[in-house]
Design a protein around this nucleic acid. Structure first.
Lengths: 209, 209
DNA sequence: TTTTAAGCGTAACTATTGTTACGGATGCAT
DNA sequence: ATGCATCCGTAACAATAGTTACGCTTAAAA
């Protein structure tokens, strides 16, 4: 695990902290689609992502959902951090977007490291900053943009985080993430195809550069 | 200032920290409507609110805006914190909702206090937690609810933070905060009046209990 | 008092999004 | 190959939200 850590976090943490982490943390591997965090769950450890991508979603009482953001290697979930340190239930859902590897850090160490390692403080605050900004961008999207723009930026974001121009999703999948209906997605995708921005296939969508 | 501090933050901070704050911080008073933070501004100090209420808004490139949340006494703006510690430009706008008093803490102390005071760490993390959750509630509103619901919850929130059942806003003001048009607001307000939930007057709205 | 500007109500219309319904295409299981 | 379920395209319609336009009311300014 020390190797995984060094590969992704050496530029962020002192070697001493890296050693501490590797002594106490647990490596966790998850398959694509696997659920990592459920709404209402209490969280006891925070994840450092070393491989793959995690999608983080908001859900309302009726089970409708909305994609908030993706996590990439070298990042952690500030929401989890927030729930851990304040001992509140999770208000988001997280699942593996692709096969992923995570380093799980028990929450007890957090406070200690905050005191002892400046790099840890920086990391934690940067995480909050990044996550806040991502959520704000989500706000921008749903508040200021129309569905066609939202759809296109969704496809592009997804392409980046999956590292491919082929989006392997059904229209229904997309509709869930954007909180709209399948018919609307199909309609707007068709428009994008006519504008030569994407190509539609069964079960996947190709983004044209 | 020590008095103001003790009144609002004694239950949060050790007396030693209170003393430190009062030695270095500056008391700032703002009038209703005064702008505290502009988009793009670099921030050098973080505010502790001791009196009044601050409204925090998001703005897009075209100048459209959307209300994110209010700050109350005993709270700080995690966005500001975030921008301070990571030295990024502000991506939000803040203005006084009512006449307010703030204690401005220069950012240099932040890191030091994080190391030395557990109560400061708790305060900072609680602030992040609260602000994240407020933004998420805003996401819920715009993603999952229709304009009539949003309008009503806007009125109720505003009533709470202004501590009165009389909302002194024009329909246009409300339209800006919700990022919709004046006509839509007037239309929906009229509906609410017919349902006996509010009473409409010129320049203000009364919420019926 | 008269004038002016801001605030509000309403109608008529458009645009966007959501819903229902149905049929064809595709791929998988038997 | 046949049957079956999922996926997708499309039409028709409904609901919601945004736009334009205009006139009345009210408060403040001249």
């Amino acid at each position: 695990m020390l190797k995984e850590l060094e590969l992704n976090y050496a530029h962020l943490f002192e070697s001493e902290l890296l050693k501490e982490i590797s002594q106490i943390a647990i490596l966790k591997e998850v398959k694509e689609g696997e659920e990592l965090i459920r709404i209402g769950q209490y969280l006891k450890s925070m994840p450092l992502l070393v491989e793959g991508a995690i999608k983080v979603l908001r859900e309302d009482e009726e089970g409708f959902e909305l994609l908030l953001y993706y996590l990439e290697r070298g990042e952690t979930c500030a929401m989890t951090l927030s729930c851990c340190t304040t001992n509140h239930k999770s208000k988001i859902r997280a699942e593996a977007e692709t096969d992923s590897k995570l380093i799980m850090i028990p929450i007890e160490k957090m406070d200690e490291w905050l005191v002892n390692y400046k790099s840890w403080r920086n990391f934690v605050f940067n995480s909050y900053h990044e996550r806040l900004n991502e959520v704000l961008e989500t706000v921008d999207n749903i508040a200021f943009k129309k569905m066609d723009e939202r759809l296109l930026s969704y496809l592009k974001r997804k392409a980046i985080h999956n590292n491919t121009n082929i989006i392997s999703s059904t229209h229904q999948d997309i509709a869930y993430d954007l909180h709209t209906s399948r018919v609307v997605v199909s309609r707007l995708l068709k428009q994008l195809e006519k504008q030569n921005i994407i190509k539609l296939k069964r079960n996947h969508i190709e983004i044209i550069e």
